[in-house]
Design a protein around this nucleic acid. Structure first.
Lengths: 186, 186
DNA sequence: GTCTATACAGTGATAGAC
DNA sequence: GTCTATCACTGTATAGAC
């Protein structure tokens, strides 16, 4: 039995494995074990090997956030886009059951490999949220501080809820952050 | 030339390497390369191999936090202990230049190996900070929420400041969190 | 306590048949 | 596009001489 794949179908599978095992912890044999895709196919899709696989994963995550979160924050009704961000973030991270791959990569020396993409992901998120907050009436300084606090708070909530093995820590943190933004835009 | 070591001197060196490279990224040859300590010595000190090395590192970190932060929070003057926590945290994490090993281990499957120690580290930190906040006048519910928010906020600030390669993100986050606690205990 | 030598499984990667 | 075979290398771990 021989299943035929497309590159686009493979990337989300890789994403889940990199998320769970980290960059160094992810080996080609584990990918094959979990997906049934052999080395031959993997190197056909990603001639650059493991590094290209991780790059593709980061690019796909980035594209998802751009569509679902950043662009609405920049262009749509500010309050609605912020509210949508909170539901999307909660869903995306499965209420704390799934970590942020980009954040995890930032913590160890994997960062050196992908520093541009990692920095970009967070910078664009903060910039987009700041723009929405300013449209909603915040000053530039206030909006910048709140935006940083929210993105940082999401990352911290993912770490803490996983460390405690308690998803309610994540959902509660999100609610606290959301209330703080609401208060700032009255 | 042959340097003689003690186990207690080796652990801090290992800590720095695990912090930079992560559990999977740390190999025995890299440890030898950076410390000059050969495999023979390493297995003499840590018969359980890499896992025992990481365990020893976590235990030492835990002991440091217990002495410098948790115990003062539980026993000393609440406001003074909280103020000391912020300076100690800022120094320990080198103003964002150093990550939290325990938090990093929590994010990938390394967590499974050390879940008890990881959960313990964060639970005791939150409990100690909550106790101090209650002595300073907060209600139990309020103190719990603030404590979780601070520990989570520290972790998030470490992720974000590293992702952006900007230490000022960390120091600014710490200031914001400190102000929030000050406001709660007036 | 440190060194050298060694075992052997697992690593990323490549080549060629199908 | 997938498979199998194979590559050179690095991984953790052990044993014994000093």
């Amino acid at each position: 039995m021989k299943t035929v794949h497309e590159r686009a179908d493979v990337v989300p599978l890789l994403a889940e494995i990199f998320r769970e095992l980290g960059y160094e912890g992810t080996s080609l044999s584990r990918i094959t074990e979990r997906t049934g895709i052999g080395k031959g196919s993997l190197y056909h899709f990603f001639p650059g090997g493991k590094e290209e696989m991780a790059s593709a994963v980061i690019a796909e995550i980035d594209a998802w956030f751009e569509d679902a979160i950043y662009r609405p924050l920049r262009n749509d009704d500010a309050r609605k886009a912020i509210a949508a961000m909170w539901t999307n973030v909660n869903d995306y991270f499965r209420s704390g059951g799934r970590i942020c791959l980009v954040g995890a990569f930032a913590l160890d020396h994997t960062r050196e490999r992908f520093s541009a993409a990692i920095g970009n992901y967070f910078t664009r998120w903060i910039d987009a949220l700041r723009a929405a907050l300013m449209r909603a009436g915040c000053t530039g300084e206030e909006a910048q501080a709140l935006a940083e606090e929210c993105i940082s708070g999401i990352q911290g909530a993912l770490v803490l809820s996983r460390a405690l093995g308690d998803k309610t820590v994540f959902t509660r943190s999100l609610e606290t952050l959301a209330r703080r933004l609401d208060a700032a835009v009255q």
